[in-house]
Computed example of a mutant assay.
Amino acid sequence: MKNSILITGATGALGGMVTEKLLDNGVEDLAVLVRDPEKATDLKEKGVEIRVGNYEDKESLLAAFKGIDKLYFVSGSEIQNRTPLHLNVVNSAKEAGVKYIVYTSFQRKNETESSPIAAVAESHLKTEKAILESGMNYTLLQHGIYMDLLPAFMGEKVLETGTIYLPAGDAPVSFTLREDMANVAVEVLSGEGYENKEFVINNEEALSFEEIAKILTEITGKNISYHSPSEEEYLQALKNAGVTDEFAGMFAGFAGAFKEGEFTDTYQNIFKITGKKPVSVREFLSRVYSNN
């Protein structure tokens, strides 16, 4: 059977959500790329073809991409080493005859080495360049900041401490729910008219952490304040709490990008593509904290 769509990262949060939504929409010619087929037995039972491979192994990618028309390429999680892995995916897709690639990239303003998230940005920028030069049709979905990570940015014990402690300054940030991003992907993969275009996929609102603290106060009835320390103080606090240097550095980098206004811009592409309004921060926080 020829599979027209292949989803990478199908056992992960975003890829898995996109796969399930495509199945719910009645898409039949569907395959997924997974490292461990044991983790995809539920998908196999639903009629999805399981293709085993990983971004490091080009031969596995060439085999997995055979007969595929559309590839939904979820960016890898190994940030430090993912540029060569991403180029493996793009080059393999082209060699295997994939006609159309949809890539989960990132929203940005600053593309230079001065960006606090330059290490994160590098692989996305090089991957986009490779896709544009490949000759394949493409859609670049430039994702904003995942709203799903907001509790982590605020701190797991925010209701106990009563303080959002993050060196993010006072610039507003546009947070976007992963499910809204998945809904966009499903429409792009199953619809028409999105070829050779770039879309920033983020929310229609941007809120400062001061505003987010006020919303959390209203939802929980607990007085939540916001404090923006220096990056040095923040890193030391995380170190004292036993957080790894890599994890602390990543969160500090994103906080620095928030502070510089990297994610202040808002767009209506989610509504334009899906016809649905994106979930607001207030709605999301109500879901997460209303019973606390």
Rank of each mutant, 00 (worst) to 15 (best):
K126Y: 08
N292I: 09
A206I: 11
K99V: 03
A40M: 04
Q80W: 11
E192P: 09
D170Y: 08
I117S: 08
M250H: 14
E204C: 07
V279D: 08
V52Q: 02
K222A: 03
S114N: 14
E262D: 09
A31H: 02
R178S: 10
Y194G: 10
L43A: 07
G15S: 03
E262W: 04
L132K: 08
Y72Q: 02
L166C: 02
I7S: 01
S228V: 01
T163S: 02
E45K: 14
A213N: 09
V200Y: 08
G47T: 07
I219M: 11
K46A: 10
E283H: 05
I219E: 08
L285T: 02
A248M: 03
P278N: 13
I5Q: 00
I201Q: 01
N203L: 05
F251G: 01
G53Q: 02
K277L: 14
G97C: 07
G47R: 06
A185G: 02
S4H: 15
T266L: 07
D69I: 06
E246W: 11
V102S: 02
M147N: 02
E20M: 13
V32P: 00
T8E: 14
I270R: 00
A63Q: 12
L235R: 04
P229V: 11
A252C: 09
E133K: 00
D148A: 12
G221V: 09
R82K: 10
P229W: 13
G242I: 06
H124E: 04
V98N: 00
A152Y: 10
T264V: 13
V18I: 15
K21A: 15
G135I: 05
G135C: 11
N269A: 14
G135M: 08
N223G: 06
A182F: 02
K94E: 11
K94G: 06
E210S: 13
P229I: 10
N54Y: 10
Y55E: 09
F263A: 06
E262P: 12
N137V: 05
K129E: 09
R178E: 15
S123D: 08
L140P: 13
E111K: 10
T127Q: 02
K214E: 08
A237N: 10
L216K: 00
A255N: 05
Q236Y: 05
E233M: 11
K214S: 06
F175P: 01
A171I: 04
K277Q: 14
I79R: 08
T8K: 03
A31C: 06
D36E: 15
E78L: 10
P151W: 13
T264M: 14
T161C: 05
I219R: 03
T176P: 04
L33K: 01
G253H: 11
E233T: 10
L6G: 01
I273Y: 12
P116M: 08
Y103M: 03
L159W: 11
E133S: 03
I101Y: 05
E204I: 15
A213R: 00
L235E: 03
S174C: 10
T41Q: 12
D24V: 12
G76R: 02
D57V: 07
G16E: 03
Y165H: 09
E20I: 12
L43S: 05
K94V: 05
S114Q: 10
E210P: 01
I68T: 03
L159K: 04
M136S: 03
L140E: 15
V90G: 01
